[in-house]
């Protein structure tokens, strides 16, 4: 066990953990930030997606020691007092059904739009291909991201 210092959502934490433990588990079980989800446990589904220095990253594929001097953003750090524009677009656009994939998708969408403010439908589909959703067929998710992009443009 070592003391690992993390900055998560702007807050500094020191946690005594095995530095090899996946970031996902430290966020959920040590810091109580359960917005980041556990699902496939093999690095495929993206439900565990967080932002590390702004880049979408699967937190089940990162040893916690690796993020010690980075800025980690989880779903709890998105939006401020209310919903971010992406979150609002997801709500308005009926993009969420069971909701379990949503935190990861919201973060991937934020990263996607930061990189590519005017994506095409194909670019959005490719941009969320690291996030599995079992409920929606992805159609309304793509539309919601497009709506958010359009709104930023205006």
């Amino acid at each position: 066990m070592t003391d690992v210092q993390l900055t998560v959502n702007g807050n500094e934490h020191t946690v005594a953990v095995d530095a090899h433990r996946p970031l996902r588990d430290v966020l959920r079980q040590e810091l109580g930030l359960t917005g980041t989800k556990e699902s496939c446990d093999s690095g495929v589904c993206g439900a565990c997606t967080v932002l590390v220095d702004g880049d979408a990253t699967k937190s089940c594929l990162v040893p916690v020691g690796k993020v010690a001097d980075t800025t980690v953003t989880t779903i709890e750090g998105v939006g401020g007092d209310g919903l971010s524009d992406v979150q609002q677009a997801f709500v308005d656009g009926f993009a969420s059904q069971c909701g379990y994939c949503m935190p990861g998708l919201v973060l991937s969408a934020h990263d996607l739009l930061a990189d590519n403010p005017e994506p095409t439908v194909e670019e959005i589909r490719a941009g969320i291909s690291g996030n599995v959703c079992r409920c929606t067929g992805y159609v309304k998710i793509v539309d919601a991201i497009m709506d958010a992009a359009d709104a930023r443009e205006r």
Partner: peptide, 12 residues
């Protein structure tokens, strides 16, 4: 490279 895995994996 663009076809490898997904964006998160390619970020890292």
């Amino acid at each position: 490279i663009e076809g490898i895995a997904g964006p998160q994996v390619r970020n890292n």
